[in-house]
Nucleic acid binder design. Structure first.
Length: 550
RNA sequence: GCGCGUGUAGCUCAGUUGGAUAGAGCGUCUGCCUCCGGAGCAGAAGGUCGCAGGUUCGAGUCCUGCCAUGCGCGCCA
């Protein structure tokens, strides 16, 4: 239990003696102005109505009813309309750091998930080209969300869904054939909706080298398999460079071969939510909130294929059947329209899947600026910036941090030139430097950091404002983790890291650890160690390294 | 037109679910290097939180209507 939890519990106890409702849940906040104290609550104001008294009167009664000493409060004041401001004993507060030293890997961990399984699906790029910057945002976001969930007690599987069936793959195959035949001397004739990137020609060249018997480009199935394999391999290399690992790769094609698509269609028909019109099979998605009903199976005149959302529904049924009671899909906002349809399909099956299944985390588009101009991303036109381009130019850690330092639901402008030119002023270096500096203290002092336990150390000497600021910042980590996990917003961790790094640099610059009187050095080593471990924990959640020197 | 987002400092963005005098980075300006690493530090300037109403003790945050902007709206995926 953190000291904030203890204070909150004491507030609840005191409030109940005044007749507050049983479900009273005081909110503790850091006052904007540190001179107000360490914690503030508006509890007295929220109790004004139920208790029928003035906020300030309630505040006074609360203070009187509290056993302040046991929760480290040395001063309690009433301010403004009825805020309660608490000042904590610095030594009491600093002892909260011991939790970090004792169990570094447990710091900030929570057990919200109780070990339940959750599947996080992200990237899920069609194997029709390299991963571009939009996929990069998903990779960073999905991986960090997964780690956050693991940190808060869930058993997480990271899943990549391969759309290796359907029209786009057919286009890929035909585009490859066009390049193969062009290499044989025919005019290049890329089909309507085909892919124009140079990488297709490279694949065609390798195909010819590996398949001397098909110089004419007649074996479309072989070319399709070859191109898909080649692009999957490329994507794997991209992900490897980015340090993202998946637990499962789910192939759309398997949904056809194992009968899932067929079974899903039959189950939907049996549910009574389908109908035929103009020779096509429709699902009545409007029953479940959609704008209009959607075609499941095209009419014979249009080829008689299933539309994309049928395998999508079948796929999500497998998530449920594979035992995931929680599923999170990280996708670009351009896939927004699929949400209603997939959920409608799952509801129509009426097999006990809850309405909000699966969860979606949508991120807005990434636009790329290069040379002061926006680069239009189009795989088919062959112009894009790949994830690997970015990693090569600014480094894996910087790319990850850039993607994660902002909320997913606002548009991200990735200025490649800026990212590159800023590489020395990049916030990620600022954060990592703070970690390296703490390591440096132990290196120079020739102290094994792991031996710093904080036991028998008087932490009340950490009385400088910069020290107390850093202590408070570090102790906010668990609440930050909880907020980030609850809202699936890793950028809160990035913001915490930046603020912690700032507090650490300020402290480091103002005060020395080594060469001070022994009592001070011992206490400051505890703070340095806690800072080192805290920043490392935050970096780990975001998938960044915590270098010991830079 | 409809749906989902976004609009906060010159630029890029935070803002702890409705709290006190709205914050940070970059950029600009002024000072700091014999130091556990200056990849840094201290400070300054910079705001009609898109606009207008509403809800209440209290609104950047919630509601309504406008304006601007991104994405989606196919028997494409």
């Amino acid at each position: 239990m953190t000291h904030a939890d203890a204070l909150r519990a004491e507030l609840v106890r005191a409030a109940r003696t005044l007749g507050a409702p049983d479900d009273v849940a005081p909110i503790l906040e850091r006052p904007r102005d540190p001179s107000f104290g360490d914690w503030a609550t508006n509890l007295a104001m929220t109790l004004a109505k139920p208790l029928g008294k003035k906020p300030r009167e309630i505040a006074e009664a609360l203070i009187a009813a509290m056993d302040t000493a046991t929760v480290g409060v040395i001063a309690a004041e009433i301010a403004g309309p009825g805020f309660l401001n608490f000042r904590l004993d610095p030594g009491f507060q600093a002892r909260g750091l011991l939790a970090i030293l004792e169990a570094p890997h447990a710091f900030g961990r929570l057990d919200i998930g109780h070990g339940e399984r959750v599947v996080v699906e992200f990237v899920s790029a069609n194997p029709t080209g390299p991963l571009h910057v939009g996929h990069g945002r998903q990779a960073a976001l999905g991986d960090a969300i997964s780690t956050l969930l693991e940190y808060t007690g869930w058993t997480v599987d990271r899943e990549f869904y391969y759309n290796d069936a359907g029209a786009q793959i057919a286009n890929l195959a035909k585009s490859t054939r066009a390049q193969v035949r062009a290499l044989g001397g025919e005019p290049l004739d890329i089909p309507e909706g085909g892919y124009h990137g140079d990488y297709i020609r490279e694949i065609a060249e390798r195909y010819l080298a590996d398949h001397p018997g098909d110089a004419a480009g007649d074996d479309l199935a072989a070319m399709q398999a070859y191109a898909v394999a080649a692009l999957r391999h490329e994507q794997d290399l991209d992900l490897q460079a980015f340090g993202v690992k998946f637990d499962t790769y789910y192939l759309e094609s398997s949904l056809y071969t194992d009968g899932s698509v067929h079974n899903t269609v039959e189950a939907l028909k049996a549910s009574g939510h389908t109908y035929e019109e103009d020779g096509a099979l429709f699902l009545r998605t409007t029953t479940f909130g959609d704008d209009k009903d959607r075609v499941m199976k095209k009419s014979a005149a249009k080829g008689g294929d299933y539309t994309y959302f049928v395998p999508d529904v079948a796929y999500h049924v497998t998530k449920w059947e594979r035992g995931y009671r929680r599923a999170i899909n990280v996708q670009g906002a351009d896939h927004h329209s699929t949400i209603t349809r997939v959920r409608a399909g799952l509801q129509a099956l009426n097999i006990g899947i809850p309405q909000g299944y699966p969860d979606y985390v949508l991120h807005q588009m990434v636009t790329v600026m290069k040379g002061g101009e926006e680069v239009k991303i189009s795989k088919r036109a062959g112009s894009y910036v790949t994830v690997r381009d970015l990693i090569d130019e600014v480094g894996r850690d910087a790319v990850r941090y850039f993607y994660l330092m902002r909320k997913g639901d606002s548009q991200l402008v990735f200025d490649v030139d800026l990212a590159r030119s800023q590489s020395e002023e990049n916030p990620v270096y600022y954060v990592q430097m703070a970690h390296a500096r703490m390591c440096g203290i132990f290196r120079v002092g020739e102290i094994d950091a792991a031996t710093v336990t904080g036991r028998d150390v008087d932490l009340s000497v950490l009385s400088e404002p910069a020290e107390q600021e850093l202590v408070k910042q570090l102790l906010d980590f668990p609440a930050t983790v909880k907020g980030a996990a609850d809202h699936l917003e890793p950028h809160r961790i990035a913001a915490w890291l930046l603020e912690t790094a700032r507090a650490a640099h300020t402290w480091y610059h103002k005060h020395h650890v080594l060469g001070e009187p022994e009592a001070i050095t011992r206490a400051r080593l505890v703070l340095a160690r806690a800072t080192q471990l805290g920043i490392a924990a935050g970096l780990r959640i975001l998938g960044l390294t915590a270098p010991e020197r830079m």
